[in-house]
Amino acid sequence: NEAEQSTPVLFDGLTEENLQFVSKLKDSSSSCAVDVSTVWWEAAGCRELCVVTACENSVSLWKPLAPDHWGKVYTWQLGEIPVIQIIPLLDTCNLICIALGNLEIGEIRLLLYSSENDSFKQSLVKTGNIKAVLGLKDRRLVSSSRSMQEQEVEVVSFSETGRSKHGQTLMPPEETVLAFAEVEGVKDALVGTTAVNSIVVWNLKTGQLLKKMHVGYSYPASICHRAYSDSGLLFVVLSHPHAKESESCGNPAFRVIAFNPKTARSTGVIFSSLPPGHAGRYVEGEVKDALAAAVLSSGAIAVWDLLLGRCTALLPPGPAGGWALVRWGAAGAGLLAGRGDGSVCLYRYA
């Protein structure tokens, strides 16, 4: 039934299904999925790609038991502060990072397994009025936080066993940083988008703030999802939750902009708009490589090929309710889609 309920709708005469239902996880004890992610987990010498689901007051780890079947390994119970998001830590094993808070992030915690005393543990990484956080390569975490007038942008490193090591401070811009993205192709380069719609560029090694570039007024509150450098240009993938619909671009969800970091000038490269005739707006989404996925206000999930600037699949809300969140799994794990009832469906994208 689930597969029938969640059959992707295809556009533009595509002849093969590129989004296929694989399996479903349902935590009977939870009522609402807050976030979902994948994590490498090693136990008894076996390293597997597992799924992590977060509810308001708990986070569960699921391992593959048989093809398309998942079993819960462990559930971390959190305190009174609700979980807001899972923060994927790239190229790590047995480490899960989560953000907790009410309207904003107030706490970042690490969930882990300690082989020393054979137990699942959690540890506090950071507290504060945290505006944005991103997991970086080499077991690092960058965050922006506000205290009174000042903004702090800090990088924290972890050891393999999850111990926090020295933190490094990056020079903060005047405006609040709302999202980060590592720059592919340039080691030590990091970009961020700010509350006044600027792109800022840092040198992670020295902490220098290298450049500030304005995105433009047509697309307020842009959020950076991905950045890469090619041929001397900095390409940034942005989402536009508050962009206005236009005749030329339709209702844009994602946009790729090329910046010349030397001159701060920019040009739009490609727009990825909502499917034609589809009412609603971009609510939240994620980008992985050249693929973007977003939950729309209609409760549907749309997938775009950013190189083509075209929507390639649409998951309708279905009788079980609208989709609430969408994430890309690591290592070709496909698309993870969560509903308000706490269920998470896995789809293969090919």
Binding site: A189, N203, Q208, K211, S229, G232, L233, N260, T267
Partner: peptide, 23 residues
């Protein structure tokens, strides 16, 4: 916009900006 509107492009933009920016 055309690429010419972006101004002179440098393949080493990161190193150049790092040497120009305040420490």
């Amino acid at each position: 916009c055309s690429d010419s509107d972006l101004g002179p492009i440098s393949l080493n933009w990161f190193e150049e900006l790092s040497s120009e920016a305040p420490p």
